[in-house]
């Protein structure tokens, strides 16, 4: 009974994770400029791979595997925002502009090369 429940839980996590990965890649393809694409890829993408790792941990039902999977998820949750922010900062400082549908650029006029 409890084994069946764990298996079903793992199946649900796998499906939800794959769905999030699909949403992230559709966002990557459809959104208008780099900064909005970054929002799709770094949030939904991390969610997708993290959920699939959790599914693997739940399926294995072993404390060592569970700890490693959790460490992996925490690692991705820590590094994805850092890398996305670094890339956005570099791209903005170099001069890649917002897309044509952007309404407002709140960083316009600031010294992005040498922030205070």
């Amino acid at each position: 009974m409890i084994d069946d429940f764990i298996t079903l839980l793992s199946a649900a996590f796998v499906l939800i994770g794959a769905f999030f990965a699909l949403v992230a890649s559709i966002g990557l393809l459809r959104l208008p400029d780099l900064y909005s694409r970054m929002h799709a890829a770094s949030k939904a993408g991390t969610m997708g791979s993290g959920l699939m790792l959790i599914a693997l941990a739940v399926h294995a039902a072993d404390s060592g595997v569970f700890a490693r999977a959790l460490a992996g998820v925490v690692f991705f949750l820590l590094t994805a925002p850092i890398s996305a922010h670094l890339l956005a900062k570099a791209a903005y400082a170099v001069g890649y502009r917002l897309g044509p549908s952007a309404v407002r650029d709140e960083m316009a006029g600031q010294d992005t090369e040498n922030p205070r």
């Binding site: 796998v14 994770g17 794959a18 990965a21 992230a24 890649s25 990557l28 780099l34 694409r37 970054m38 890829a41 770094s42 993408g45 991390t46 997708g48 791979s49 699939m52 790792l53 599914a55 693997l56 992996g72 991705f76 994805a80 890398s83 996305a84 890339l87």
Partner: peptide, 18 residues
Amino acid sequence: RILGLDMLVAAAIGFIAV
């Protein structure tokens, strides 16, 4: 393209888990 590479890595991690 760099962002695409990042997303590719995330998808590959999902693949590995599945």
